[in-house]
Amino acid sequence: MSENIIQIEHLNKSFGDVKAVSDLSIRVKEGELYAFLGVNGAGKSTTISIICGQLSKDSGKVIVSGRNIDDGMQDVTRALGVVFQNSALDMALNVRENLETRAALYGIKGEAFRKRLEELAEILDFKDILSRTVGKLSGGQRRRIDIARALLHKPRILILDEPTTGLDPQTRRLLWDVTEKLRRSEKMTVFLTTHYMEEAADADYVVILDSGKISAEGTPLELKNKYTGDFITLYGVTKQELDKIGLPMETVRDGVRIAVPNTAAATELIVRYPELFKDYEITKGKMDDVFLAVTGKKLVGGNEK
């Protein structure tokens, strides 16, 4: 059984009359990819800021890597690597200067720094831009440096606060490849906040936050099973031919999609109408459907619709 690397109990935080986080309790297991899903203002970044010691909490208990943050942040911060929503590097300094300054804050200097820089430049592919000024880098290049900065001290927990917003697909892929590799090789925990459903779908555990409270939680499969049904997409048949099934359906490209409560119901239909099921596929509901079912909101670019 993996230990809880982050444990939050009854966390509360308000800004004036606005309750940003309300009685939040979560447990993140070591080595897992844990996703916080929610619209802007759901309380994701507030929770992260409290975990990182950037923001005081009103009440509750936060334990990170076995240490209560109330007992001081020094040991906690050694365990954390954070990729902020917006790059927090010095735009006027070059890549090497930025990473050198930050590494020194963890006591990584001289040969140890050079070695670590080489490793990171290799896996994140930024060898060619080491002497470029950070302010002049493209969004994708800058993101790679942000990730390198977060990984400088080999943290046990990597916090990614909406890391892929506005990124090109190539950098997005690189980010996930690197974090996946580190999770496997170093048992690093990844704590992700996102409003991209496809990213949440790849997580080991998902928490859906709405107005500072947990609306739903579980593995993506559990959430899909609980909050959405299955979909059967049939090809080579018309909507009229499927009318006898008597279930709601919609026309999609090259076929018709029927919503069923679960996989057992899909099997029952196939057995009952084998003549219709010549070319078909059964898929689980998507995280978008889960999010919509749980919160009644659709997520478009982090904003609710």
Binding site: C52, Q74, T77, L80, V82, F84, A88, L105
Partner: peptide, 8 residues
């Protein structure tokens, strides 16, 4: 934020 999320 980036400077204070360190042991410094």
């Amino acid at each position: 934020k980036d400077l204070t999320v360190t042991p410094v």
